[in-house]
């Protein structure tokens, strides 16, 4: 086990980046999986959205937007870039960054779950809006489908949010403490 506090600042930052990238990779590998207990009506939690919220909760809106852009591009690659997922994840990152939760609420778990719930609805709505501008799908179909998946994905994502948020938050807090000392 490496003693993190003894590492030089540069290698610490690199380790931090590696851990962060690793957590994204785990979320990405969960995307196509449908494990028992993780799906509702064939819909699974939106892992990338949970990750973007966990990242942006204690960061600025700009950092949130960057994370949204990066993960949105990857999700585009894994499904289809038309329409793009970047817009919804960037908006989620910006909004979460703007909330400035830590200033008003100290409590962590339930508030993060609630933010994820709201953001999942926002995210799916933005994608549905994008679909509405494409001719290939029927408007009525899009919005009835949207209701179904927005609710299912919001419920599941908010339930699984602490599983992503807790370890990541612990790690990032430790890192920032070391940074200040």
């Amino acid at each position: 086990m490496i003693e993190v506090s003894r590492l030089s600042p540069v290698s610490r930052q690199l380790l931090n980046a590696a851990v962060t990238a690793g957590s994204v990779l785990i979320c990405l590998l969960f995307l196509p999986a449908r494990l028992p207990g993780m799906e509702l009506l064939g819909i699974s939690p939106n892992w990338l959205l949970i990750w973007v919220v966990a990242w942006s909760v204690k960061r600025t809106a700009f950092q949130g937007a960057l994370a949204g852009l990066a993960l949105g591009l990857i999700q585009d690659g894994m499904t289809s870039p038309h329409p793009t997922h970047t817009v919804s994840l960037i908006v989620v990152g910006i909004l979460t960054g703007r909330i400035q939760k830590q200033r008003y609420i100290q409590e962590d778990f339930i508030s993060v779950a609630l933010i994820v719930f709201g953001m999942a609805v926002v995210g799916e709505t933005i994608i549905a809006l994008q679909y509405s501008f494409y001719a290939e799908r029927n408007l009525g179909e899009i919005w009835t489908y949207h209701q179904k998946i927005a609710l299912a994905s919001a419920i599941l994502s908010s339930l699984w949010a602490p599983a992503v948020y807790y370890p990541l938050n612990r790690w990032w807090e430790k890192m920032s403490l070391l940074e200040q000392s």
Binding site: V10, Q13, L14, A17, A21, L25, L28, L29, P32, A33, L66, L69, A70, L71, L73, I74, D76, G77, M78, P81
Partner: peptide, 29 residues
């Protein structure tokens, strides 16, 4: 400097994954 580099690498990597249709990810999966 290091933050800029890391951000660049992250965005570049994400763009690469998008261009390759996430091929590397699917292989790992």
């Amino acid at each position: 400097g290091i933050q800029v580099v890391i951000t660049g690498v992250a965005l570049g990597g994400a763009w690469l994954l998008q261009q390759t249709q996430g091929a590397a990810l699917l292989e790992i999966y």
